[in-house]
Amino acid sequence: MTEFITQVLTNGLITGSSIAVVALGFSIVYHTTRIFHIAYAAIYSLGGYLCWYFDVQLGLGIIASLGFASFFSAASSLLIWLFLYKPLTRYGAAENELMVASVGIMIMIIYLISLVFGTDPKLPGPPSDQLLSARSMQITINGLLIILMLVITNLSDFGLKMRALRDNPRLIERMGINSAALTTLLFIASGVLAGMEASLSTNDLGISPFTGIHVFINAFIAVIAGGSGRVSGAVIGGFVLGILQAIVVFFAGSAWILSVSFILLIAIMLFKPDGITGITNRND
């Protein structure tokens, strides 16, 4: 029993914090711009592969690799916003059209990755310290990132502008706030979060081209489960999903992780469509 509790708690907290960080990065973009940014999955994969490349292939050490990977993820996120979503939105693209464009860029990035690096999973290099250190680093940085994001979105001026942008993108322009610059910042932040988390998890478990999509599915389920329209919902949803997955892994093995997430998604959609924290978005 104690083994069960310690395993579920440690694994659940690590998986949960990891899902929460990815979900945060997705939700700040999704809730303010309403773009179904599925290319985020590819940005995650890209971050993981870059970290692996810098760390294992070039031997730069995990801290530097993490920095580089985050930088390039942020850059790709920024480029996708500047050269894809922004012009498309300006030309009045519908929600579905943005979605298909996003699917297109996701597929391109993921298969370019598999062209360059091959489709076989890349494992982290021989651990310089103990295995524990990869995971303890992951949970420490995740915790810091989550607290930082919660503080920024709930307490700072920036968070206030973010919520204003979510509630009424037209009005905020009239107030003299540059909403395009704000969105640009959000995309950069989202890229950094994806890159960081991808690097941390690659350092622990390794990466394959499709990891990003799995992680994205979990993250979006966490966003929905946590509650629509609220950034802290992503964190709550992430931890709920993480603990749930840890319980299932303990009893049934890791083959069924995604099925559990999916069942949670269906249950939430059927019984509590507004999510656990449950505020309804004024835009809907």
Binding site: V100, A101, I107, Y111, L115
Partner: peptide, 14 residues
């Protein structure tokens, strides 16, 4: 092929 199809989706939508 997949890279190409991704590109096709992008270009078509744009």
């Amino acid at each position: 092929n997949q890279v190409f199809f991704g590109l096709v989706l992008l270009v078509l939508v744009s």
